[in-house]
């Protein structure tokens, strides 16, 4: 590689420094929706990781063959293929997890982390590096979802991985496991990171286009800039 990034750095950057959920603020929908319990969060994380690693490898191998103009639809087909495989595997071996994740398994297709890594990393690097990147990003995603799921499960249901926690199991704060709690716990996690790093870790001050996988193809940023100009005029 031209800028001599070590293999280890590729592997580890996704876990802490560029954690997709907590630092890059990507993949918000599955993060909020599947972290009502620790096991669900981990299940979602592992499923998405499997898809991410496979799609990263295949896309990096195909990157030279795919014409530039149709690359996004091609990436989506590759990703959707692997999502279908994961869907079958979950349905066959862990039907209970399949039932509780439900709609969010097929929706891995539109997870912006996966498309984002395809566009930003896999299409420009070799298969081995892309696999490492997939493993790192996937671990970061799984870790973040697992931690958020654990927090919401402990406070919302008074259990951790199904095991009762003393005191809290008698006084669960149910709202934490429900929809508003998802937004709130995520907000607190980001605020905590801001607090401990003095606001340096999270570059993104607002949800916007910078991190979005589609940024290079869709003209949202341009459109929104035009809209704002229109509003001012």
């Amino acid at each position: 590689m031209e800028n001599k990034v070590s293999k280890l750095a590729i592997l580890t950057k996704g876990i802490i420094k560029e954690n997709p959920v907590l630092i890059l603020l990507l993949g918000t929908c599955p993060t909020l929706a599947t972290t009502s319990s620790c096991l669900n969060g981990l299940g979602m994380g592992v499923s998405a990781t499997a898809v991410l690693i496979c799609s990263n490898i295949v896309i990096s191998l195909l990157a030279k063959i795919i014409p530039d103009k149709v690359r996004i639809p091609c990436y989506i087909v590759v990703i959707a293929g692997f999502v279908t495989v994961v869907q079958f595997v979950l349905q066959a071996f862990v039907p209970s997890l399949y039932a509780s994740l439900g709609l969010f398994i097929p929706l891995i297709v539109v997870n912006c982390i996966i498309l984002g890594r395809a566009e930003m990393f896999a299409s420009k690097n070799n298969a081995f590096d892309s696999a490492l990147d997939g493993i790192g990003m996937g671990l970061g995603f799984t870790l973040a979802l697992g931690v958020m799921g654990a927090v919401r499960e402990v406070f919302g249901a008074g259990t951790i991985l199904g095991i009762a926690v003393p005191f809290l199991s008698a006084h669960p704060i149910m709202i934490v496991a429900l929809a508003p709690g998802g937004f709130f716990v995520y907000a607190c996690a980001i605020a905590a990171i801001n607090y401990f790093t003095n606001g340096k870790a999270i570059q993104k001050k607002e949800f916007g286009c910078a991190g979005c996988a589609m940024a290079s193809t869709c003209q949202q940023e341009k459109c929104l800039a035009e809209l704002e100009k229109g509003a001012e005029a």
Partner: peptide, 22 residues
């Protein structure tokens, strides 16, 4: 508070809206 500015306060706002819809 400084650490809540930007993204976190937006999410807290969304939490309250979601609470209302409950």
């Amino acid at each position: 508070p400084a650490c809540f500015q930007g993204v976190p306060i937006t999410l807290v706002t969304a939490a309250f809206l979601s609470l209302g819809f409950m």
